[in-house]
């Protein structure tokens, strides 16, 4: 089967996942169009990461079907780049070594890979940090390296699992703006998981709300019609932003309360 340009980038149909007796997500239907930035919010432990792992092909779903550009997903999703929540850089490789890794694995010549990796490090603002090892970088710098490491392979789909969750507020807004600028260049399909509703609205075209776990499902799907390009700090102050926030928060609050009650 050929992948189809007009097909959705990501299409999940009745997808469920369980770990032993624990049902993490149940009956999830989700479609993301090519070039769409979709944020997924929900209370902690609602199976958001589980969903990303399914789309990445790291863990096949217990039930349901995943289609990537119209093609059923079998094994790892080769169209996707994955930005993990935890530190995922190889600690024994330098920043440059980490960024060029994907190219090296694909058999790109060393010099060429090195050249491209330098370019990408510069692009994420880390010129001059090529020879640092991950433990010599701050949290924000590590995230930039991880972003360059993923983007250098030019994936059509970008999966992001609370990538900026561990950063301080200033660094975080900086990174969010840089992410938007990079995304604006070639409009990848993005699935962005976060528990921060403001971050979700500021970044995304659509916000999908998950219910509290176990057996999480989608309880809301809201379009975010804010003009682009956006500045994540400024957009938060606009009337439209607050209106969307109020609307989604009404629903999300219930789920957060339910998660806490448990």
């Amino acid at each position: 089967m050929r992948s189809d340009a007009s097909a959705p980038a990501i299409q999940l149909s009745r997808v469920s996942q369980r770990f032993g007796d624990y049902v993490a997500i149940r009956g999830v239907d989700l479609v993301a169009a090519p070039g769409e930035f979709v944020a997924i919010v929900g209370p902690t432990g609602c199976g958001k990461s589980t969903l990303l792992n399914i789309v990445a092909g790291l863990k096949p779903p217990a039930e349901g079907e995943v289609r990537i550009f119209g093609k059923p997903l079998a094994g790892l999703n080769r169209q996707a780049g994955y930005l993990f929540q935890a530190d995922s850089l190889l600690p024994w490789k330098t920043a440059l070594g980490n960024v060029m890794l994907g190219l090296v694995l694909r058999g790109v010549a060393d010099g060429e890979a090195r050249e491209q990796a330098r370019g990408w490090l510069a692009k994420v603002g880390l010129r001059g940090f090529e020879d640092r090892y991950p433990h010599q970088l701050s949290g924000g710098m590590k995230k930039r390296v991880a972003l360059a490491q993923v983007l250098i392979l030019r994936p059509k789909i970008l999966l992001m699992d609370e990538p900026f969750g561990a950063l301080d507020v200033q660094t975080r807004q900086l990174m969010e703006n840089e992410l938007l600028a990079l995304w604006q260049e070639d409009r990848k399909t993005v699935l962005f998981v976060t528990h921060d509703l403001e971050e979700a609205i500021a970044l995304a075209d659509r916000v999908v709300v998950f219910s509290a776990g176990p057996a999480s499902r989608i309880v809301g799907d809201f379009p975010v019609e804010l003009p682009r390009p956006r500045d994540v700090a400024e957009v938060r102050l606009t009337e439209d932003f607050l209106k969307i926030h109020r609307e989604i928060w009404g629903l999300l609050r219930e789920e957060v309360m339910r998660a806490h009650a448990r």
Partner: peptide, 16 residues
Amino acid sequence: PVVLANARMLGASGRQ
């Protein structure tokens, strides 16, 4: 396991 998953997503084969 995260580093391992990352390397797999970046396209590493078994030998790699």
